[in-house]
Design a protein around this nucleic acid. Structure first.
Lengths: 155, 155
DNA sequence: CCTATATAGGACTAGTTTAGTACTAGATTG
DNA sequence: CAATCTAGTACTAAACTAGTCCTATATAGG
């Protein structure tokens, strides 16, 4: 199905809310209310985002969360990595792969290239675009550039 | 993690084997041996591929499987769809979505575009390339073209 | 100093999905 | 009619996901 988890989806929504109010500091409760999500779940996601350095937090009374850096410097790939770990379409594409037939099947290599292409495109999409703040829609030009750059060997 | 299931991975390997021997007819047992996979699992995947029309089969003694059409006419997207159903990064991107905050969050729309871009790129990758039969590696030019075509509104 | 409000971290549970197996039925060849 | 295939379905075990709860800690303010 090639899907991202709900948590990652939630994370994007929450980050988009934070991006829309860069100067303010929002609590987990506020974000939950804005997003119509359950408070404990929101809290969990924000904690994870903090752990991975995408948001900064203030403890105690009047505490809350805000983006750790400008929305333009947060990419879709970073969000995915933060919530789900480094993405890999198939096991073969991961660092420690052990495939007895890889030398003959060649499929792994092909998937790896697809994997890389998708990954690079996700690195070019920023939170600004995901949050719809840029005015313009997602820049597919960026996608193209990423893919073109990924083609190490010329055709 | 943005991954495909093992079954889909197996399907690709099996289809690659069939693509490598277009004139022959291979049994599930033979394919299992070639691929170092468990016979029942291979059988299950092949049955699914048959159901979705990617392979044709012959019953009875001397039966077996072969590709339903040339490898060049089987795409990565078709394989994914056959094994996992229509792909969608997030729930919002599916046909019957019900998201109370979609009008304000805008995130769903952005993911949908990413989704579409990936999907189109997968439609341009054929089994020939996945199986490594084309001589040339996966054509990233095709990926680019697909993405460029996906950009309905100009920048 | 004490309390209310926050985040931080971890443990835990229920539900769903995935992977794999087993069994029965039907088709074809010889 | 027997051997060898595929077809379909049902089932089980394991893994993952989503979500909740509890405890600890930090801060602001009375």
């Amino acid at each position: 199905m090639l899907r991202i988890s709900k948590m990652t989806d939630y994370a994007t929504v929450l980050l988009a809310r934070l991006a829309a109010a860069p100067d303010r500091q929002l609590t987990a409760t506020q974000l939950a209310a804005q997003s119509h999500l359950a408070a404990p779940t929101v809290s969990k996601v924000l904690k994870q985002l903090h752990r991975r350095g995408l948001v900064s937090s203030t403890l105690g009374l009047r505490g809350g969360y805000r983006l750790a850096r400008p929305a333009a410097e947060i990419t879709a790939a970073q969000i995915l990595d933060a919530l789900e770990g480094p993405m890999a379409l198939i096991e073969c594409a991961r660092a420690t792969h052990q495939c007895s037939i890889e030398s003959t099947c060649g499929v792994g290599r092909a998937w790896q290239r697809v994997n890389l292409a998708i990954r690079r495109s996700l690195q070019e999409i920023t939170l600004v675009e995901l949050a719809g703040l840029g005015g313009e829609p997602v820049r597919f030009a960026a996608l193209e550039r990423a893919l073109r750059g990924g083609r190490a060997e010329r055709t």
